[in-house]
């Protein structure tokens, strides 16, 4: 019993020490960033189509875009198993990175599907 306790305590201590270390594999990190970029682009294109088909105009569409991006962030967080720090070095990576990068694609596909469905 005592031995078990001891090992648990020492394990806890050493794992704390490990968590203090900034151990990053730069390539894996870049790969994660790329995955984020891809999923954001994909979501913005799909979201653009949906927004156009549903006929959102002006402010509504941009709110929809931010909603889509928020959903993407939540989805990525869930995919990372809610332990961001084992995949990324900060929360900004998953929440803010590439937030506006997909806007151009979003606007293009929004316009495209909106035009096809609604204005002609």
């Amino acid at each position: 019993m005592a031995g078990h306790d001891d090992s648990g305590a020492s394990e806890k201590k050493s794992s704390e020490a490990i968590n203090d270390l900034p151990t990053f594999n730069a390539e894996n990190m870049q790969n994660n960033m790329r995955v984020i970029y891809y999923s954001r682009t994909f979501m913005s294109i799909i979201g653009g189509f949906i927004a156009g088909i549903w006929g959102f105009t002006s402010l509504m569409g941009f709110i929809f875009y931010f909603l889509i991006m928020a959903i993407t962030s939540v989805g990525l967080t869930a995919k990372a198993g809610f332990t961001i720090h084992s995949y990324f070095d900060s929360w900004n990576r998953i929440i803010l990175d590439g937030f506006l990068g997909g806007l151009m694609s979003f606007v293009l596909f929004w316009t495209f599907s909106y035009d096809i469905v609604h204005i002609f």
Binding site: R34, Y37, Y38, T41, F42, S44, I45, G101, G102, M104, S105, V107, L108, F109, T111
Partner: peptide, 25 residues
């Protein structure tokens, strides 16, 4: 309202994301 020539420019800039998806990095 957008003219066709400007629609071309919109495509030129907006399709970059799509290309990165379908053509890879």
């Amino acid at each position: 309202y957008v003219s066709s020539r400007s629609w071309y420019f919109l495509n030129l800039f907006g399709l970059r994301g799509l290309f990165s998806l379908i053509l890879g990095e």
